[in-house]
Amino acid sequence: MKRLLLFALFALLASAQMRVPDAEQFVGPPRGTPLTGAALETESHTLASMLRCPVCQGLSIADSPSEMAINMRGQVRELLQRGFTHDQILTYFEHSYGQFVLLKPKFRGVTSFVWTLPLLVLIIGVAIVVMKMRKMQSVPT
């Protein structure tokens, strides 16, 4: 019994000294409500679907069976349990991996073209069609 207690104390001391980088030092303290139960499962899946698995070909961490994705899903779940918001969690992963990790790129910098270019092309296309139609109407038959 004494040995067991000593071992437990030693394990506790060792784990107390062990420290992994914490999201809080990058995105500040949790700004949301700690999640549990069904809400935790739903939100974990939603967020995992928004993060790219860095070792896969275009898969989200929600869909990937890789160990990397499992670890990332675990971290998402833990952060939600601690009360971090969606935005804080996405910012944390973006801080480490860059925008690459976001399956839906944010509207800023070069990636804003991803959103604006198709719209711009559509507007130009419509303008050309309208111009053409007007021209055709103005030509006497």
Partner: peptide, 14 residues
């Protein structure tokens, strides 16, 4: 690095 938390903080992909 148990559960890869440090690797994630460093953005390690492979």
């Amino acid at each position: 690095d148990e559960r890869g938390k440090t690797a994630i903080a460093y953005g390690v992909g492979g």
